[in-house]
Amino acid sequence: MKMLNVNIKELINSDTALTPDTGSIVFSLLDKALISKEIIELDFNGIEVITSAFLNAAIGQLYSKFKSDELNEYLKVKNLAVEDRALLRKVISRAKEYFNDQKALNERFDSDFE
């Protein structure tokens, strides 16, 4: 199986991963690779500062299209500093809630108008 290595620092050309815009660059790449069922190694080596806004766009947004088991199977996170892992866990947990709420809202909306 093909393995895609994505070094975030090289991809965004910065050691500072801050904005939703740069997060969305990572998202687009992951999105394509996940659709074609490639295994992706997402490498945070060299990233000094990372925000929830970046992670929401890069990874949280994936839950709008993919399920947890798909992400666990195809997406591997590497070299994320221990202190940043807590933040990523919060982002993941928030994304799951967010898209569950949105799905429930859409279903309610659809049934109201059927």
Binding site: G60, K90, V91, Y98
Partner: peptide, 18 residues
Amino acid sequence: DGNTTKTQDIPGGLGLKL
């Protein structure tokens, strides 16, 4: 925690809680 006024496909609502 979790409240955000964003309406796109990007979740939010964590920054100010952090």
